[in-house]
Design a protein around this nucleic acid. Structure first.
Length: 487
RNA sequence: GGUCUCGUCGCCUAGUGGCUGGGCAGAACUCUGCAAAAGUUCCUACAGCGGUUCGAAUCCGCUCGAGACCUCCA
């Protein structure tokens, strides 16, 4: 089945097919591990997760998915420096080796990050590789050397810069983003980097070593330019090393279009002589309660904070699918509640498909294939999850389980299993029974009520219900038994 | 300052110029002592103001509002 994807490179929906037959090579810009991941990050990784699942489940491709870990970067250096208030005892002891300190801090947050994404259903086994930048220093320096050899890199003050002016003489710069160089906001960029460089728009490939900061050797023309990689270069090197260029799909947040991805394209082409990726796909940001998520507004949430508030990780996963990946998603607590209920409704439908013994005399035959085709068609249309879910709900609404013939129920169940290979938020098997601690007082009232009910003493039964409610529990009756639930 | 995007029922999310989605919330009913669950039914919105058109949520203009990128950022 043909997948259409919005390609930022061409600014259009394009039919997707992999360069190598049947294998999709996909690279996702991963996190900089200097802090706990927030829900915006979650969306940025749920998007490629959804994409790789659709590629595998619906299109039938094998997917080699790579997501890098940026473990060397300004904020990591800052927070791992001696005396930093951000250092946690769990990271271990700081030493006088800045490389080691940076690694310890990065490794700590990397573990937390991998835990977090696994909590929201992004599975380790779906990755081809999760490379760390610092494990690819030799590939990075090799690329920098190549760029210099080709005449697109120059040294200034021990740092290496990319010569954009030279590059633009023969190549396009600004494929993902319309860059209005004449109107770069004046004044701001000058302060952004303290190093000397020829042009304001030139970007750094290799940063010269500063005292107390992590650094690696870099032999160039008999000199050792000790330093560390620039931000953009690592993705170029790791994409090349783990997938080979050009690969099929490159993902990232919209903010990365420029300069990060634009620079990545330029570096890879300059150094390796080939394009980076056939498709560039970008997820939109999310807002919280209608405004930008930021710490100062107090609407900045990490995944662990939301879980501490008692939210279910799978509800968060499902909620993110209620908006298309490339539109702004408004994260609200009320919205999360409503999507949680929506998820539960499909879950109940699935349980009913398994459990219900249809007793209606006029049982209906439904075409599960038709539903499958309709739902998958929406997913193939640039991962249109809201539309796909709409199809599911419309079907559920017009086909209550109790009216379905047994064979149809089986077919539907098969479809939901398949659908769940993509959404991964539902359970199969029999309805779980929740075991909760019931205070003796409550179960006592409950027994008393049940007896009263059998005696048709409804006044007493109601009295007991009130007492139970006051203690924070409720009674759900069925034909010949009852269950107690927490309110 | 420059370049863009968006503003849809109480809330969230789709929307191809005409036939007016889906979820949540809400309402009524059926069914059960009560309660819940389940089922049936209802709930016509497109920021504002102009314009184009036989007809606009959808096209154009302006205003207001939210946001993005240009600067670390998913």
């Amino acid at each position: 089945m043909q997948l259409y994807l919005y390609n930022t490179l061409t600014r259009s929906n394009q039919p997707f097919s992999p360069i190598k037959p049947n294998v999709v090579r996909m690279y996702s810009c991963g996190p900089t591990v200097y802090n706990y991941a927030h829900i915006g990050n979650m969306r940025a990784f749920l998007f490629p997760d959804l994409l790789q699942r659709v590629l595998r489940v619906v299109c039938g491709y094998k997917v080699d998915w790579v997501m890098n870990i940026t473990d060397i970067e300004d904020k990591i250096i800052r927070d791992s420096a001696i005396g930093s208030p951000e250092w946690k005892p769990e990271m271990g002891n700081q030493t006088d080796n800045p490389n080691e300190n940076a690694t310890k801090l990065a490794l700590f947050y990397e573990r937390e990050f991998l835990n977090d994404i696994s909590t929201i259903g992004i599975k380790r086994e779906h990755f081809h590789a999760i490379p760390r930048a610092t494990d690819f220093i030799s590939e990075i320096t090799d690329l920098v050397r190549r760029i210099i050899e080709k005449g697109f890199g120059y040294e200034a003050d021990g740092s290496i810069y990319f010569n954009l002016t030279q590059w633009r003489k023969s190549e396009k710069y600004g494929q993902l983003f319309t860059i209005d160089t004449d109107n770069f906001r004046a004044g701001v960029r000058i302060d952004a980097d303290e190093y000397e460089r020829d042009q304001v728009s030139d970007f750094v490939l290799w940063k010269a070593h500063k005292e107390g900061e992590p650094s690696w050797d870099f032999e160039l023309n008999g000199k050792n330019l000790r330093g560390r990689p620039g931000w953009h270069i690592e993705c170029s090197a790791m994409g090349h090393a783990t997938l080979g260029l050009p690969f099929d799909i490159h993902t990232g947040g919209v903010d990365l279009r420029f300069p990060h991805h634009e620079d990545e394209i330029a570096q890879s082409k300059a150094g390796y002589g080939v394009e980076t990726s056939a498709f560039w796909c970008h997820n939109e940001f999310l807002e919280v309660e209608g405004t930008k998520m930021s710490k100062s507004r107090g609407n900045f949430f990490t995944l662990r904070e939301l879980l501490q508030r008692g939210l279910d990780a799978l509800d968060i996963r499902f909620a993110m699918m209620s908006a298309q990946y490339n539109s702004v998603y408004n994260f609200t607590f009320f919205g999360l509640e409503s999507t949680a209920k929506a998820r539960q409704r499909i879950q109940d439908y699935i349980y009913d498909l398994q459990d219900t013994i249809s007793d209606s005399s006029s049982l209906k035959n439904v075409n599960a294939t038709e539903l499958r085709v309709a739902v998958f068609a929406e997913l193939l249309n640039n991962l249109h999850t809201p539309k796909a879910l709409e199809r599911v709900f419309a079907f559920i609404n017009s086909n209550p389980v109790s009216g379905l013939e047994a064979n149809s129920r089986m077919e539907l169940l098969d479809f939901f299993v398949e659908l769940n290979a993509i959404f991964d938020v539902w359970e199969f098997g029999s309805r779980p029974t929740k075991h909760i601690e019931i205070p003796a007082e409550v179960s006592g009232y409950a027994e008393k009520r049940w007896q009263a009910k059998k005696d048709r003493n409804f006044a007493l039964a109601d009295e007991m219900r009130v007492k139970i409610t006051e203690l924070g529990f409720t009674i759900l009756d069925s034909k010949d038994s009852y269950i107690i639930e927490r309110l």
